[in-house]
Amino acid sequence: MSIEVKNLNVYIKDNHILKNINLTLPEKKITCIIGPSGCGKSTLLKTLNRLIDSVENVRVEGNVFVDGEDIINSNGYQVTELRRKIGLVNQRPCPLPMSIYANVAYGCRINNMYRGRKLHRVVCKNLEAVGLWNEVNGRLRTPAVRLSIGQQQRLCLARSLAVEPEYILADEATSALDPISAKKVEDLFMTLKDKYSIIMVTHTLRQAVRIADYVVFMYLGEIIEEGPADQIFNNPQQELTKNYLSGAFS
């Protein structure tokens, strides 16, 4: 169980967005990808679950191995199966146009995973796992958009967990939330890392310091430095990393 990126290059139109990325992501850890905006963090994340396909005029070269399978050259069944295996939590929560219950059940239904009572149990379990159960119990059939933003984000997390992923990608998952909700979501990630490998793009350095086990620093489409959190934060090797960490640019 691992994600390995080899010589990955991504172009959108004539722009070279990701330049020769080589990366092995550790298992059952929180990996934080940091770097100034526009450095390609989100593109890298989108490449891992092939959502990059929906970008127009995109060209991807190189390989990404997920559990030993090259996902860049796979198609059809393999892509949907890949996406099931890799959960995604976006910056802005994005509840589907259906009820709270149906949102969580959605993934199981489209993947033919569970039905009936079993499905119900899965939905409840995952709502509990993200701490929503007590808040929404009794109004499971109301539209998900009526929840607060913070609740929506946790709902999206529950939705991802319901399809039993192995990895979770989080793209600045807390930046659109109020501080209290952000804290809740952040704590959730801490509890989830025993079971899942989490790859998180974050803009806030302090968040990375708080939760990261492994850190990747990117700048203008390249990986400048990577390593265990301790090492990157306390003893960065590259000049750029030092400058970024000291707040010379952001």
Binding site: S54, L88, C156, R159
Partner: peptide, 27 residues
């Protein structure tokens, strides 16, 4: 229909048609 909505569905392993039927057409 915003792209994020489709992406949310794709990210759960839905095919394009499933996404169309259950998210886009519904919305």
């Amino acid at each position: 229909v915003p792209l994020e909505l489709r992406e949310a569905s794709w990210a759960l392993g839905a095919t394009r048609w499933q996404t169309t039927r259950k998210v886009v057409l519904r919305k």
